[in-house]
């Protein structure tokens, strides 16, 4: 009986705190994405020929965890099938955050372009059973730092 109350309490608390954290995270992601809009990151492999660049590998990684309530929801989804929205937002946030961190390090190096961007996803912390506890996303690419100021 007490155990049941504890679980329900935990679900309620983690729902409120978890969704608060998620909302705050999305807000900061959108804000920073606007700032870094001028630095395009593309998956093209061929570097431009007309200008001289210095190439440097840039990385961005993040480890995000899903809250208890969403994990509970995902377990239910596993039972009935269908879209597991709680994990979709987790991975969406993780990918966007990783890309942003990569762009931030590239911007510090005064890069103007990022080429051949790739993602790498790994689930690190397995929860009970098959539930995913947390995922790590790495985004990496080649930052193109112009050697001479552009002639424009």
């Amino acid at each position: 009986m007490y155990q049941m109350i504890f679980v329900i309490l935990l679900l309620i608390i983690s729902y409120f705190i978890g969704s608060h954290i998620e909302r705050r995270h999305y807000k900061s992601i959108i804000d920073r994405e606007k700032k870094l809009n001028k630095l395009p990151a593309v998956t093209i492999k061929t570097p431009p020929e007309h200008e001289k660049f210095e190439q440097q590998l840039v990385l961005g990684n993040v480890t995000l965890s899903v809250d208890y309530f969403k994990r509970f929801l995902a377990t239910l989804h596993n039972f009935f099938g269908g879209r597991v929205t709680s994990y979709e937002t987790l991975l969406d946030r993780a990918r966007r955050e990783a890309l942003l961190r990569m762009k931030e390090t590239a911007a510090e190096k005064k890069a103007t372009l990022i080429f051949n961007v790739k993602y790498e996803t790994a689930s690190i912390y397995k929860g009970s059973g098959s539930a995913i506890g947390s995922v790590e996303v790495l985004a990496y690419g080649t930052a193109m730092i112009p050697l001479s100021p552009s002639p424009q």
């Binding site: 935990l10 608390i13 983690s14 705190i17 978890g18 954290i21 998620e22 995270h25 990684n61 993040v62 480890t63 995000l64 965890s65 899903v66 809250d67 208890y68 969403k70 955050e97 690190i124 912390y125 929860g127 506890g133 947390s134 790590e136 790495l138």
Partner: peptide
Amino acid sequence: NIFGGELKGYTELL
């Protein structure tokens, strides 16, 4: 893992 959010320790470690 209960409340969600970034696991900074893991991020740094990796």
